[in-house]
Structure formats: structure tokens, C-alpha cells
Design a protein around this nucleic acid. Structure first.
Lengths: 330, 330
DNA sequence: ATGAAAGCGCTAACAG
DNA sequence: CTGTTAGCGCTTTCAT
């Protein structure tokens, strides 16, 4: 301990924690000693008594598809990190892709290393939500889980409503044979967007639905399949901008005019939609706002925890609204 | 504590830590109690005495350019995580892009949250290496820092040697006007590759050198600039496969035949190089091996720390060898 | 305004 | 084999 270089122990603690009632001269002396000794307080010891460590986990499952190729997620992650940083909280990212990662991550999460967690587990059968359910750690999910009845907190885009917006727009344009390219249907967001499509086109035959994988080539491929099955389709709602870009390419390659012959609406409103030809009409979601909202809900939980744990209100989850962005493709 | 449901305290500890000398019956009883109570040991308290927390940080600076668009880094990160997981160590990723992130990350790192850190700080003027220098935390750098004289441990590709390999190959093909497209020259790796080029083409005029940004469009743009300045160039060494793909596109767009009129050699050996037309001749680096090597060196440091800190040998850094992969582009 | 003492939840020596 | 005793490094009453 840095007693040797100043007065004594608990005063050092006070100085470091910036408590007011310390004489300026003493505080200065301590600070100098700390600087010379290169002393850094041991966070584990501190958090043992303060019960918090000013760090929260960002848990990402299936990173190979998300973290590295997904401009969407990139943006969201950045917003979250910024919001956390502003509160002086250190975000630590936990990646999980192999099944063997789960127990280790759960152990880490329940080990008291972090004050809370922001979890992105989009596979609808992901075991993580259930595992976190009863371990008492404040958690906010990004995207809805498969258990809407539980009291878990989540922030989700209004995927279903956004899809309806897109398809209704297509209908209002007079399109009659509206197809859709979905995301992987093991993800809740993909299913919700498909549900929105079905809300508007309830009688649509299965041949007008193709499952994509949220990648650009995947979008092109799905578009090709759709065109082979239903050469007379006159519109397509694509569940992501990246896939829409691929679909646009396939359409153009086949000599089909967009939007004259086939109208296209995407989803996400990523930069890619502005550089396609024609530029993409799409459903906008405010990713940054979602990120900020997630942090806000998490911090609220974290702080509420200490005060009184009696007030267990229903989960104050948030569904963010969507908005149609009209450009040239539809 | 879970005494209430079993015998007593330190025995619980023994059971949890899997110590052998505990009667099977008792162990079983404790385990059941633990299960029922949902008890999880508090890691902060544990690490306070054991002096380790079975977690290491992976610090990534400038993530916007690396983490999300870089298949190269993606692959390396995956290899590292796998290697760490095998040792039961939890990797926690710390992202830093804003200057304000530094103090918080340094605080986290020195706060005893992790046993060591793997640091990717490729900007040659990154302040992190210096900050970590004297804080006693075991650290291994990915890529060389700007202080080759210090005793920091790093794992780096033989960028200079690999570049020489590429350019010598071009020379052996009889090429006389060999250009190069570099990466951002504020990164040590880019500079090293340029140095390798210069080793072989010492008299090359500056007009044969164009700086790119490690992206595909950037590669195309640099190629265009090169072609405008030196229409008679007959070969180009491109410092990354992604840029090489862009350069190939530009060459083709201008009607230049590869490799007949202009030979192209890339760097990295990413999958993209196999899908270009013609397929890319490139310099291969074993990314996974580098990842494994980094973890190995880190774990070695971590374990050595406890034993005896007298044996301060010179830094056992590693430079991984490069290998030329011949395909059609040169 | 500052020091002394107690204790956060755990492991590790030491007894038994 | 298992319980007891001491701290790990810090914050926090409680005195002073």
C-alpha cells in the first residue's frame, strides 16, 4: 500500500475515489506518491465491497455472420459502446460461436465480472436467454427472444410493422404479384418480417417466398429462384438491403427493368442502398437509437437493483418504429 | 454461504475446485445444494486470493477498419479465441476507436480484470504499447510496434520478406517496370511491405508507388492512378488481396490482359484471391498459426510470472515465415 | 479531516 | 478427510 509515501491507508482510498473531505495538501501528496509508485487500485478487491465493477458485457452469438460482415451490427455496436463510454462504463465483448463457448461465457457472466449484459442472440433457439433468465444479472436483449411471456427486457425493431409498411407501399403502387426474400428463418427478426409480409399478402402462394441468408450473393440467388418459379412477379420485398442489392443485380442481369417491371423494397437502410442502381427504396430503422435505448434500459436495471428489489414491474421493453425511405427502386 | 445445506465452508470450496481429497458422499451432497441454491462463486473474491481470473483481453484499436470488414483479422481472431478456449481462458474483447477510450481501457487492463492481453495496435503511432509497457501485465502484440528495441513480445508476419518474395518472382518473370500498391503508410505492416519491395527494386521511381487503404475500391483507385502515371508498367505488387482484387478489376476494365500485359501479385492469401479472374498469385501467411503463437507466448508469460521473475530473458518474439502461392495472375 | 478496525467472499495453510 | 484461522486489497463505519 502507498502508506509509506504519505499519511495512511483509508485516506489514499478517499483521495482516489475523489471524496471531498480531504485536505488539499494531503490529497496532493498522495496523488504524487501514487504517480511515482505507479499504483493502481485492484478492481477485484474494490468490487468485492462496492458490488459493482463499472463494466458490462456485450454478448454476441454467431459472430461469424454478424460481427464481420454486417455493417448493420457494426453501427449498432458502435452506438452502444459510445453510450456506455459516456457513463464511464467499460464495454467488454464476449463472442460465442461454438457450443463449447456457452458454459464458459455463462460462468463469466455469473462470476460477477460485469454489472450487466447486452445480449444479441438472434437465433430463436439460442440457449443463452434461458440460461441468463434466473441468474439475477441485469440483461437487455437486442431483438426479441422466443419467450415473449417472460419478463426479460428487450429492444427490438418493429420488424413486422416495417415489413407491412414496405408491402403496403408495393400494393399502393398497383403491384399484384408481390414476392419476398426472407432472412434465415431460424432468426426471429426474419420470421417477423415474413409475418408482416403475410399480413398484407395473406393469400400469397408459397412459390412467391424464398429464403435468403442476409448476404448479397444469397439475395441474388433467391431472386433467381423466385424468377424461375414465378416469371410474372412484379414486385419483391427483400428482408435486408444487402440481399436487395444482390436481387437488384440478378434482376438487371436478366434484363428486367426496376422499378418498371419489378419493384424492389429493401430493409435496414444501410449505405449500400444509396449506391445501387436504381437507388433502393427501403425500410429505415434507427440503429443508433436502438443502441442507446438498450444501454439506457440496462443502466436503469443496474441502478434499480441496488435501491429496492421489490418493485418488479412488467418488462419495460421497447419496440422502435420503422419508416419507409422512398428512392427509385419502388 | 452454502454451509446451511451441507457441512461447511472450505469443503464447499474444495468441491467446487475439484480437489480430490473429499469424500464422494459429501461432495455429492454439496453439489446438490449448490445446484438447488443456484450458488455461483464470486470470481472477484476468488481472484483476490488466487491472483488470476482465467480471462485475457483482446485489445483492438481502430476497429472500424479492422473488425468489420477484414476477413483477415476475422480469421486471426477466431484462431486466437479457439486457442484460448482450449486452455479454459475466457477471451474478452476490448474495442478502442475514440481517443477517449484509451484511459478507460488502460484502467481496465491495469485493474486486474484479466491475466494478460493480446494487443492489435497497428497504427505505428498508437499510444497503447507505451502505456502497457510498464504496467506489468503480460502482453503480446500482434504485429510489430514502433519500438523494436524494447522488450515487448510480439508475433508478426515477415512482411518485408514476403514482399521480397513477391517482387523477386515478378523480376524472375522478366518484368522490368514493377509498380506497387501499398497499404496505409501509418501502419507498420504497410511500411514493411513497401520496404521489401524497395529491397528488390531499389531504383524504382516514386511514380511506381501508390498508397491504398486495404479496401477493394481503394485498390482499383490506386491501380488507376498508377496506370495514368506509368502506362508502360508491366507488373504490380499489391500489399493485400482485397486491394489486388480491385486492381485486377481496374486492369480488366481498361482492357489490359493479366498476366500477359500486367502481372499481379497480392498479399495475405485470403479466399477472395481464388475467386478473382484470373486467380491471384499471392503471398501466403498462416494466420491461424500466428493466432496460436500469440496465445502460446501470452500463456507462457502468464505462467512464468508466478514462478520466478528473475529470468528476464530477451523478448522471445516470433516472426512467421511467408510463402508464395502461384496461381494465374503472375 | 484522518486513522483504526471490520469485513466483502473466497482460498490456503494448518490443525485435527 | 474436514473444520479453523488468516488474510487477498480494498471501502467503510466509527471513533477521534
Amino acid at each position: 500500500m502507498a502508506i509509506r509515501s504519505g499519511v495512511s491507508k483509508s485516506t489514499v482510498s478517499r483521495v482516489i475515489n475523489g471524496e471531498p473531505r480531504v485536505r488539499a495538501a494531503v490529497a496532493e501528496r498522495v496523488r504524487r506518491a501514487v504517480g511515482e509508485l505507479g499504483y493502481v487500485p485492484h478492481q477485484a478487491a474494490r468490487s468485492l465491497v462496492t458490488r459493482h465493477n463499472d463494466a458490462v458485457a456485450i454478448v454476441v452469438t454467431e459472430p461469424q455472420k454478424r460481427l464481420y460482415s454486417d455493417a448493420y451490427f457494426d453501427c449498432q455496436l458502435r452506438a452502444i459502446r459510445k453510450a456506455l463510454a459516456q457513463q464511464g462504463v467499460q464495454p467488454v465483448v464476449l463472442l460465442v460461436d461454438e457450443p463449447t463457448d456457452y458454459p464458459r461465457v455463462v460462468k463469466f457472466l455469473s462470476g460477477g465480472h460485469v454489472d450487466g449484459a447486452l445480449v444479441f442472440a438472434l437465433q430463436s433457439d439460442d440457449p443463452l436467454p434461458a440460461a441468463l433468465e434466473h441468474m439475477g444479472l441485469p440483461v437487455v436483449f437486442g431483438g426479441r427472444t422466443d419467450h415473449p411471456e417472460d419478463r426479460s427486457v428487450f429492444v427490438d425493431a418493429d420488424n413486422r410493422g416495417g415489413a407491412r409498411l414496405a408491402v403496403r407501399h408495393l400494393v399502393s403502387l398497383g403491384r399484384r404479384r408481390i414476392a419476398t426474400i426472407t432472412g434465415p428463418l431460424d432468426q426471429t427478426a426474419s420470421v417477423a418480417r415474413l409475418d408482416g409480409y403475410r399480413d398484407v399478402v395473406p393469400a400469397g402462394p408459397a412459390s412467391l417466398i424464398a429464403e435468403g441468408d442476409f448476404t448479397q450473393p444469397g439475395g441474388a440467388q433467391a431472386m433467381a429462384a423466385l424468377l424461375d418459379r414465378c416469371p410474372d412477379l412484379d414486385a419483391v420485398f427483400v428482408a435486408s438491403d444487402l440481399m436487395a442489392a444482390g436481387a437488384l443485380g440478378e434482376l438487371t442481369a436478366r434484363g428486367l427493368r426496376v422499378p418498371e417491371e419489378v419493384a424492389v423494397v429493401g430493409f435496414d437502410d444501410l449505405p449500400v442502398g444509396e449506391s445501387t442502381r436504381p437507388r433502393l427504396t427501403t425500410v429505415h430503422q434507427d440503429i443508433e437509437a436502438m443502441g442507446r435505448e438498450m444501454t439506457r434500459l440496462l443502466m436503469k436495471q443496474i441502478h434499480a437493483e441496488g435501491d429496492h428489489d421489490g418493485g418488479d414491474r412488467p418488462a419495460p421493453s421497447v419496440i422502435t418504429p420503422m419508416r419507409l425511405v422512398l428512392r427509385e427502386s419502388a
